[in-house]
Structures are given as structure tokens and as C-alpha cells.
Design a protein around this nucleic acid. Sequence first.
DNA 1: AACTTAGACGTACAGCGTAAGTCTAACGTA
DNA 2: TACGTTAGACTTACGCTGTACGTCTAAGTT
Lengths: 220, 220
Amino acid sequence: MSALPLTRERILDTALEWVDAEGLEALSMRKLAQVLGVKAMSLYNHVANKDEIIDALVDRVIGEIALPDPALEWKAAMRQRAISAHEVLLRHPWATMPIVSRMNVGPAMLRYVDATLGCLLGAGFSAEMADHAWNAIDSHIYGFTLLELNFPIAATEYVSMAKQFIHRIPPEQYPHMHHLTQRIIQGDYDGLHHFEFGLELILNSLEKWRGVDLPSVGRN
Amino acid sequence: MSALPLTRERILDTALEWVDAEGLEALSMRKLAQVLGVKAMSLYNHVANKDEIIDALVDRVIGEIALPDPALEWKAAMRQRAISAHEVLLRHPWATMPIVSRMNVGPAMLRYVDATLGCLLGAGFSAEMADHAWNAIDSHIYGFTLLELNFPIAATEYVSMAKQFIHRIPPEQYPHMHHLTQRIIQGDYDGLHHFEFGLELILNSLEKWRGVDLPSVGRN
DNA sequence: AACTTAGACGTACAGCGTAAGTCTAACGTA
DNA sequence: TACGTTAGACTTACGCTGTACGTCTAAGTT
């Protein structure tokens, strides 16, 4: 297929293209080797194993996320960072699952977390509060994105999909879901969720925790 | 192994025990059959395929979540529901991933979503706002739980784990992460996140959306 | 007594990650 | 130029996966 020398870089480039196009579960050492014009075991001269490939791909994706801009007010900076993360995760739909289900300690990930903590500390949050705030925002980023990606419906097909599913939702058994589905069919509601809605709920509530440090922060 | 007749019920019971103990990736048709004292292909007389087993297991887990109590004020009801969901997901650590990465339309799931929407509608949220509120809360439930489960450290081992990892976090490169890790090592901070912290951020901010209906809810 | 059927079983296939060993071509040094 | 080393692609093999397909047995029905 190609006379180029096989390198770790070339393997990762090709793997990223492949998973962006075909999904993570479609990535196998044999197929990846085939795309590179090589046999499976040759890959092991350049990478330790498949897990190392996935770890490296995840860190590349994390590296695409815009770090919070220190010039911005904290809320604007966190909003921008969260929106960037959401966009990146939609661009690489396979990536969110390995991010939340594996230990990721690549350089891009460490840089990303450190910059986020730094932004919150600079805004007057205590170290513990910054940690909690960061965790709350990231829970939203990953949770929202996973629910969004799982919804296997493009916006334009939503109405026809609702028509197809409504007979599985008898109104006497599931009155509220039935009603919501009806509104979608009738065009009164597009049924789309908005990442920034939940994000603003969190950012607005965080405001009052600046400069505060509670002993028992979970049970306020 | 057993003279009991093989039934769908018995297969699902055994599968649930198995994945609770060994994890979802350890579930294979051959192993499951072996535990049941039977050969793999016999399972196919009672279930269509492995995916159907997983779908059924997920719906059982969803069925364990307490529905919002109509007698409670909306915020208390949603808090109780979310906490129950979080507890159930920790009890079945394998379950969150298939919940967020597959289409789940089992009866328990439909009942669960309908009851949640009903609670929010009864509290004065519009249909669209109820949908958005439910989505924001569930994003937190699944996102937080996945991050929590991914953190491969029991609370008691946190300090020793921090000591082990701190040399990978040079202070000149990652000053804030280094500082946070130091605080954990010195016992000034336990490093544990709290589900209810983010939950209260969301619930408190939702309050002001009761009875309101915005045309463009994502960009306020 | 003959027929039907439920359900367990055996075999087989195409795929997976990767351990282990082999072969070839390029390179450094004498 | 000749020899020794080595990087790196190769082949083979093992145990695992889900499941399509066909068979065989025992119980139930007519």
C-alpha cells in the first residue's frame, strides 16, 4: 500500500482517522495494519499494545480542547472551555467513552486539568472548591455528551422518529412521555437538548461559592 | 450443575449476579452457560442474543431506582430520585456505560422517565422545561458516576495513591494539580467528590425556571 | 402407536489480541 | 570488502469471542 516507513506517528494518524470514521469498536490491530499496508504484528514494533494506541488517541483528542483563557472573567473562561470540550467530543464521537472509563494521564490531559484548576483558583475559589467545581462541570460535559451521542436521531429526522415510536408509548401508561412526543410530532417542540442550558445552571450556582470554604461541602 | 429447567428468568438472574461480581466485559455466552451448567448454544433457546440479555439487565437495574415521590415538594423528590439513581449505579458499576451508550426502551426505563417528567410538570415547569431539566439532572447523574467509577481508588488508599503519583506531576509544569495532590498527601483534603454538590447547583438554578418558558432556552 | 416439538448439544466459521520465533535487508566497524 | 549486529516485517499458533446451522433425545399429544 505504501512505501513510507512504519512509525508510531503514522500508526496513530491512521488509527485516529479510522476511529473517527468507523468508531472505536471497529478498530482492530489486523484492520489497522491492513490500512497501513502491513501485517498486524508489525505494529508491535512501534506500540506496546492496543491499549496504548487508545490512550494515545484519547490524549490527542483532549489536546484539541481549548484551554481556559486567562484573560477572560472566570465564568466566560469556563464556559468557553466547556463548549470547546463539547465540540471536540462531538467531532470524535468515539472518544467520550474511553475518556470516562479509563485512567487517562497523558500530557494533554494533565495540562488541561491543571489549566482548569488554575482558572478557578485565580477566580477566588479555594483549592477544594475548585476541585469540586471542575468535577461538577466535567460531569455535565461528559454526561450530556454521552446522552446526546446515544440519541441516535438527527434533528431533521426527529419528527418522523417520534411518529414511529409513539405507538410504543400508550398515553394511559406513560401520559407525560406521550404528551411530549405529541408536541414533537405537531412541531410545537423540536425535542433537542442544549448543552449550554445545564452548563449555565451550574456556572450560575457556582458564583456564590467563590471565596467560600465549607467544611462539609456535600451536605449543604 | 443443576437439574432446574433453564429459563429466561434463570439466565437473567445468573447473568446479573455474574456482571455485578465480574463486570460486563467478563460476560460471555460460554461462561454464562457454564455457570448455569449448560452449553453456550442452549441459551439461544431462551434469549435472542447477547444484546437482548444486556438490554434486559439494564432494565432490571433501572427498575431498582426509586421513582420520585409525588407527595414531596419537587426539589426534594428530584433530589431523592437522583440520589437513588446514584446509589443503584454504584451497586451495579457495570451498568452506567450500557445505559448511556445504548438505546434503552424497556418498561422500567419508560416508567422511570415518565414519572420524572410528571414530577417536574406538577411542579409548574413547562413540558419543554421539564425535558431540559430532566436532561440536565441525568447528565449530572451519569457523568458524575462515570467519573467516580473511573477513579480507581478507594477512599482509604487515596493518600498512598497520591504519594505514588505526585512524582509524575512536576510543580513547575502542573503547579495547581501538584498543589492539590500535596494537600491530599498532607491530609488537608480528602480529595473525594460529592454527588450532591453538583446536584444542588443544578436544582437551585432550576428553581427560577418554574412557570417560565423561553423561546430560545439554550442561549440565555 | 405415530407424530410433533421443546430444548440441549456438537460442529464450524470468522473474527479478536498477542506471545513467540524467523527471515531479510540495511548499517557500523575492521 | 567482509563480517557482525540489529531493526523491523514476517508467519505461526493459542485461546478467546458471538452465533449460524444441523442433529439428537425425551416428553407430550393425538
